[in-house]
Design a protein around this nucleic acid. Structure first.
Length: 203
DNA sequence: ATCAAGATTACCT
DNA sequence: GGTAATCTTGATA
């Protein structure tokens, strides 16, 4: 018997209920291939955004040029630019036309850490100490993985960016809280993170 | 045409 | 702990 090869998450995974998909994304491995290099990391923190009754969602006021990818069928990447400096990556969830997505807030680097350091700081750093600051925030992980708006709409069932299945976490391993950095619908407890993981953006 | 806010980060005390 | 940086988007203050 050869060891089981990690399986790429398929369309059926993404087209289910928002909060179920958000929780189950924790622990999965996001992979980005670029120029023969593999960059990957374990998803350790996410937030859910719904288009209908969630005023914090970009999709709440309907489809615009920026957010149109959110209304695709689940299983593609929604990337936007914010604060004049940062990109944020979201996984579109649910059925076509809904406007539902999960923001990836933090990952723990797995493969290609040397490239991530170079992407973040513009140079190589030998014996880099504060590894957690590489990818412990939505803007940081996009910079580390080299994700920008050219990746907006990327199909996650393809070969450039995809997510590998991992064993489902136990309920007690998952922390829940309010979302960060928003001013509307602030009371929804739609932030999920892996407890005791040092790459989670905040306590 | 104009303007304020924004799913943030880095740097300061 | 606090805030400046920086620019695109979406609403029209």
């Amino acid at each position: 018997m050869t060891p089981n090869k990690p399986v790429k998450l398929n369309r059926e995974f993404y087209t289910r209920n928002l909060l179920i998909v958000a929780r189950e994304l924790l622990g999965k491995i996001i992979v980005k291939r670029s120029g023969g290099k593999i960059l990957s990391g374990k998803i350790v923190e996410v937030e859910a955004y719904h288009g209908d009754y969630d005023q914090a969602s970009h999709a709440f006021r309907g489809k615009t040029k920026r957010n149109e990818v959110m209304f695709n069928e689940g299983g593609c990447l929604y990337v936007y630019f914010t604060y004049g400096a940062h990109f944020c990556a979201n996984i579109v969830v649910g059925k076509k036309g809904k406007g539902i997505a999960v923001l990836i807030r933090a990952i723990e680097p797995v493969e290609g850490i040397d490239v991530m350091i170079k992407n973040r700081f513009g140079r190589e750093i030998i014996q880099y100490k504060e590894k957690y600051s590489l990818t412990n925030g939505p803007g940081k992980l996009c910079q580390a993985l080299g994700i920008n708006t050219t990746h907006n709409g990327t199909d996650l069932t393809g070969n450039e960016i995809f997510i590998l299945d991992q064993p489902k976490l136990k309920g007690k391993e998952i922390g829940v809280g309010k979302r960060i950095g928003i001013t509307r619908s602030v009371d929804l407890q739609w932030r999920f993170f892996i407890k005791d993981n040092s790459f989670v953006s905040r306590k």
